[in-house]
Simulated assay, not measured.
Amino acid sequence: MITRRDFMKFVGGGFASAMALGGYAFAFEPLARLNVTRYALTPPGWTPGLKLRVVALADIHACEPWVSASRIASICRQANDLGGDITVLLGDYATGMNFVTRYIHSSEWSKALAILQAPLGVHAVMGNHDWWEDKTAQRNGGGTTFAHRALSDVGINVYSNRAIRLEKDGRGFWLAGLEDQRALIAGKKWKRKHIQGLDDLDGTLAQVGDSDPVILLAHEPDIFPRVPTRVALTLSGHTHGGQVRFLGHSPMVPSRFGDRYAYGHVIEDDRTLIISGGLGCSIGPIRFGVPPEIVVVDLG
């Protein structure tokens, strides 16, 4: 028979555990952890002898206290030390969260991102929050956002349905960047039927002029079922790994495919996708089982 003392110990222990778990999820993992997640692969159709290291940052969601300008600068310095040939930014620089002590202006977070350096340059696409937080761009139904302009102003290459050819050691590859798939909202932003994309996959890939491999930057991974085998690697963010992840599964993922494209390395029909868990938080400042990360991909 359980005594009142034993019951109170049980309740007290459970409460203490819940407080510790909550403190970890709300404070330690979002603020104090930063992983470097590495992948090594040779996709089908990759050029023999072309060895390329890609460093990817996603979903910064700049705001205080969670991802301050100084924290962004620190992350960028660590990214530079990883020896990437090329650095890519996968969207969502602006925050979409109300639990903040201060919103960070685009001139501040872009200045921090300007620290990034790589021999083949730093290249960026937009995310949905970069569009959603720009009321002027929403009214115009397109054009450029403050995030487009802020990154361009500090010398970062910004892609909006554009592809360019790059070379390393005399071997070429293509970098293609899609405009966001959930850019424009009408009415209540959380109703999917009111969201319109500005992405043009076919038009972007039509710019690829030879048989060299293609790396595609697409903020949301939901485009992946439409990506042809012509693309060697698709890099995405957006999901944050679900922000809460248990035993390799995420209960809530902002994707119409659910956990299928929540996080990590996905191979389907000889097509390869890597989804970053990102750096910041959206909706609420919580992460559990999917700490902020810098992604490193070694190709070839």
Rank of each mutant, 00 (worst) to 15 (best):
G96K: 05
A94M: 14
V253T: 03
T42G: 04
A183P: 06
K188L: 13
V227F: 07
K168H: 09
I60F: 07
G284V: 10
N140C: 08
P48T: 09
A124M: 02
I283Y: 03
P228W: 10
S17C: 14
A218V: 06
Y261P: 01
D270C: 12
V125Q: 00
P285R: 06
Q196G: 00
T145G: 04
K135H: 11
G280M: 04
A183F: 08
A150L: 06
A147Y: 01
D202Q: 15
L89E: 01
L184P: 02
H123E: 05
S106A: 09
A79D: 04
D169T: 11
V214L: 08
I195V: 15
G289E: 10
F99E: 12
V244T: 13
H238E: 07
A137Q: 08
S70K: 14
I215E: 03
F146P: 04
G141D: 10
L52W: 02
F15M: 14
G172L: 06
N80K: 08
G237H: 03
I223H: 06
L50Y: 10
V297E: 03
G83Q: 10
D134Y: 04
L279R: 02
T239C: 11
H105I: 00
D59P: 05
R192Q: 14
S282G: 12
G258Y: 05
V253R: 03
W190G: 00
N140T: 07
F15A: 15
D199P: 03
G83E: 10
G278A: 00
Y159C: 05
G241S: 10
R139L: 00
S250F: 01
D199E: 11
L184V: 14
K9M: 07
F257L: 10
L21N: 08
E108F: 06
R271T: 06
M97A: 09
H219Y: 08
L57Q: 02
Q78E: 14
P254W: 07
I294E: 01
G83R: 10
P44L: 09
I215W: 01
I195W: 04
A58R: 03
R182A: 02
F224T: 03
G12L: 11
R171G: 04
V11T: 15
D59L: 00
A150W: 01
R260S: 09
V244M: 13
I286R: 07
G242K: 00
G284M: 11
M126D: 02
Q243F: 06
V295S: 01
M97N: 13
L57N: 00
